[in-house]
């Protein structure tokens, strides 16, 4: 029971209180760039959840059994980014061979994920916050879900904004930032939570 409780607390923290996009400012490029259409936002979100969970697991293993064991902590940045790049490439190949239908919907987003700072960010955060293996994997999963939640919500709002009357100079990117500001304001309501 206590285990379920701590999983729940981790989920609420990663999805709402410390939302990756709106309170930690990670993964903003896809948040602004891929949120024009609802379909592509969902595709991107799923791909990110998948890669973030896997990257959390693998980077934790590398840090614990490779970098820490041989005293190579200073190589963390290089090791993690290479792992993520290789992982994304690998996932892309596996999906392409085993599930062509899934590849069609996720394929275009996968290469973009290598340079998504949310993935590298969660890998480094897992280490600096001292999670154990299960904690790191769950944190990656929930952080990815939090990212997907705001990405999809943003896409929903922006599809409606297409019909709205926005001043000429504010069209496109500027108004998207204002909307993001309003969403962040709403998420600020969670910031007092401590579970």
């Amino acid at each position: 029971m206590q285990f379920m409780g701590s999983v729940f607390a981790l989920a609420i923290t990663a999805i709402f209180v410390q939302n990756f996009v709106l309170s930690r400012f990670l993964g903003l490029c896809p948040y602004i760039g891929v949120s024009k259409k609802l379909d592509s936002a969902i595709g991107m979100g799923m791909a990110v959840v998948f890669v973030m969970t896997l990257a959390s697991a693998i980077s934790w293993l590398i840090q614990t059994y490779l970098l820490n064991r041989f005293g190579l902590g200073y190589l963390q940045t290089i090791a993690f980014i290479l792992t993520i790049a290789a992982l994304v490439q690998f996932v892309e190949m596996v999906i392409q061979k085993t599930a062509p239908a899934l590849y069609k919907s996720l394929g275009v987003y996968l290469p973009l994920i290598t340079t998504n700072c949310a993935v590298l960010g969660v890998s480094i955060l897992n280490i600096s916050e001292g999670f154990n293996f299960l904690g790191a994997v769950l944190n990656g999963l929930f952080a990815g879900l939090g990212f997907t939640l705001v990405l999809v919500a943003m896409a929903g709002i922006r599809e409606r904004l297409e019909q709205a009357e926005v001043p000429q100079a504010m069209k496109g990117m500027p108004i998207a930032f204002i909307v993001a500001g309003c969403m962040a304001l709403a998420f600020l309501g969670f910031s007092g939570f401590k579970i």
Binding site: M170, M173, F177, G181, L185
Partner: peptide, 22 residues
Amino acid sequence: ILAPGAFITMGLLMGLLNMRRK
């Protein structure tokens, strides 16, 4: 200095630059 301020400031600055460019 909180998160929302960052987004809103950025949006307004981009809008301002767009206006100037127009």
